[in-house]
Simulated assay, not measured.
Amino acid sequence: MLETYRGVVYPHQLDHMGHMNVQWYTSKFDEATWHLFSSVGLTNEYMVKNSCGMAALEQKTTYEAELMPGDLVCVKSEVLEVKNKTLRFKHYMYNTETQALCATTELLAVHLDRIKRKGVKLPEFVSQSVLLQEA
């Protein structure tokens, strides 16, 4: 798996029960997503130049262990499936100091034409990049 995020839990990210609120899990996973996309060639430069983008179609998150203020966080990611227009991938969030798995999220995203606002075929280099990462 590829490391796609590294950060820390800040006090302003807590909910009224004293642990990291679910919105921040989603935020950290979202930042990891852009690093994962870039690693397979779906860079910001590519998206701007080609008027393309990626949009989430499905997301399933599981919470395994609480994260508290000051906890160091690492997200590792993997591509599970590349289809014609879609990419399925999974993120794993760990407490860096304890190595405990804290949360996972699996997403299905579609490659889209931002002008036509519809799904379009993923470029061939995405599949090739995924195969290289698996080797």
Rank of each mutant, 00 (worst) to 15 (best):
K85L: 03
L107G: 09
C102E: 00
S51C: 10
E58D: 06
Q133E: 07
H91Y: 10
N95Q: 04
K85W: 06
L107M: 14
T96A: 15
K83A: 15
R114K: 15
P123A: 05
L107R: 08
T105W: 00
R88K: 14
E64T: 04
P123G: 01
A55T: 12
A103M: 01
L101Y: 07
A100F: 10
L87D: 00
E58H: 07
E134H: 10
R117W: 15
K76P: 01
R114A: 14
S51L: 09
K116N: 09
L57P: 00
K60M: 11
Q128M: 13
L80V: 06
R88V: 14
S77N: 09
T86E: 12
V126I: 06
V82K: 00
I115E: 11
M54P: 02
V73A: 05
S129Q: 05
T98H: 12
G70N: 01
G53A: 06
Y92H: 13
L112D: 05
R114L: 15
V120F: 07
K76T: 09
K76V: 08
V126G: 02
V79P: 00
K83E: 13
L72T: 08
N95F: 02
L67G: 00
T98A: 07
T98W: 08
V120R: 11
V79T: 01
L87E: 00
Y92N: 06
L72N: 08
L72V: 08
E64S: 12
A109V: 13
L132Y: 10
E66N: 05
G53P: 02
Q99D: 15
R88N: 08
L67H: 02
M93W: 06
A65G: 04
H91Q: 07
E97K: 13
S127H: 03
V110A: 15
L122C: 01
T86P: 04
M93C: 08
T96N: 12
S127A: 14
V73K: 03
L57Y: 09
V110T: 13
M68C: 12
K118C: 13
D113K: 05
Q59Y: 08
K118H: 13
S51N: 12
L112C: 14
N84R: 13
V79K: 00
A103I: 00
S129D: 04
V120N: 03
A56H: 07
K121L: 11
T86I: 12
L132E: 11
C74Y: 04
C74Q: 14
H91I: 06
V126Y: 05
V130Y: 02
A100C: 09
S127C: 06
T86S: 13
S129W: 03
L122M: 04
V73Q: 00
T104P: 01
S77P: 03
A109G: 05
M93Y: 05
K121Q: 11
G53K: 06
S129Y: 03
T98F: 09
L112K: 10
F89N: 00
